[in-house]
Design a protein around this nucleic acid. Structure first.
Length: 117
DNA sequence: ATAATGACTGGGG
DNA sequence: ACCCCAGCCATTA
């Protein structure tokens, strides 16, 4: 018989880079945003921006990780190809007070979070 | 172990 | 300024 609870995926021994990414993203303050590359750097892998996107892609619905506060280096939204509802990320950010430019980008100088300190 | 996969990025044209 | 592309790298779709 199958157990009622699925064990933790075999891939997650000790702590993966994904876990480090989630911890970093949880530190982004309400109403602020940061880039994939910056999350990667704060998580210990400055060149793993793409992997950060993959880590967020793996999050389940209803997660408490504020994935919507992560945008690309140009201030734009990058979830188009993932199947998430179009406009969802922008709506979540606007609910936190983040304003978008006419071209759909965010002013990183104003809303960008660059880490503690 | 190798290959494939991308929610990315910076630099060049 | 905008578009394109080669390089990037942890995880396994």
């Amino acid at each position: 018989m199958l157990p009622i609870f699925e064990p933790v995926p075999e891939s997650s021994r000790g702590e993966s880079f994904y876990d480090a990414v989630y911890r970093t993203v949880r530190r982004i303050p309400h109403g602020r945003v940061t880039t994939y590359g910056h999350v990667a750097a704060l998580s210990g892998k400055p060149r793993a921006a793409r992997t950060v996107g993959w880590a967020l892609h793996a999050l389940p619905d209803g997660t408490d990780v504020p994935w919507h506060r992560v945008i690309n280096a140009r201030g734009g939204i990058s979830i188009a190809k993932v199947g998430l509802p179009p406009g969802l990320q922008r709506a979540l950010l606007e609910d936190e007070g983040v304003r978008f430019r006419l071209d759909g980008t965010v002013d990183l100088k104003r809303y960008g979070w660059t880490g503690p300190g």
